[in-house]
Write a protein that binds this DNA or RNA. Sequence first.
DNA 1: CTAGGTGCAAAAGGTTTGCGGTTAA
DNA 2: TTAACCGCAAACCTTTTGCACCTAG
Lengths: 147, 147
Amino acid sequence: MVKNSGKSTENSLNERLAARGFRFTTQREHVYHVLMGHRDHPTAEQVFMRAKKGMPEISMATVYNCLGALTESGLVREVNVDPTAMRYCPNMEDHCHFYCDECGEVYDIDFDGSQPGVELPKGFQASAFELAIHGACPKCVKKQDLR
Amino acid sequence: MVKNSGKSTENSLNERLAARGFRFTTQREHVYHVLMGHRDHPTAEQVFMRAKKGMPEISMATVYNCLGALTESGLVREVNVDPTAMRYCPNMEDHCHFYCDECGEVYDIDFDGSQPGVELPKGFQASAFELAIHGACPKCVKKQDLR
DNA sequence: CTAGGTGCAAAAGGTTTGCGGTTAA
DNA sequence: TTAACCGCAAACCTTTTGCACCTAG
């Protein structure tokens, strides 16, 4: 994992936001660092709870605003794999997601060299794709086996 | 497209429901036929509106119940590609979905022979996968070009 | 200086649930 | 006969919006 100094992170964050016409704010910086602090897939609510630890006055509306700005700036991915809520993923590398229908946990799954290639009909313009796999995660498979 | 007689459809529907412990009800039959009547991806609300035409007393709660039973019975697919609402797909053949971020329309996209193959880490048990492509559909691409 | 962002509270969807009455098996 | 299902209405949860104040550029 590459480790950046705080300063360079701030600069690149500023630049990425500015490139999309967003302002650099302390809330966006904070939400960004909160997301980067865990390699998981929190809901907006979970981001809110974590963000409040270092910034108690932050509001849910601001969290949604920040998540939107970070997503549009390409710093974070929205992951629409959990039917109950949007998830946010700090891992921008090419990968897909496993959703455990038992416990609701989301896992990153690497593409082993072979991304899915689908030929779109004429006229369609793709901007992104998301491969979601549903099933049971190892923990839940074990629980089922014990029954 | 294969066309079944009403009777055989009812029988297979009954069997598929019974296999999962669901009862055969007139509401479930109706919702099933409403879904099969269009090759699109309606929201529960849209299914509700269509279902009311032939069954004015049906309720939203029942529509959700029927959609759940039909999905669990493998007669219909849930498509989680629209961030604003679950979509329901009557096409059970292997295919993926294109979501137009401009107009919100969902399109079926065929796999041209090559389904995405991803190797899951040990312990994961997959039950389904869904490939969602985001972008602009032909109609919306045209609109953008006119600007 | 001012367009854009923040915080708060209220509203707006989509989906689920509780309950009394009904029905498939 | 009875567990499952229906219809209705209320509740729930995630996400959006309106507004007064604030702040980055």
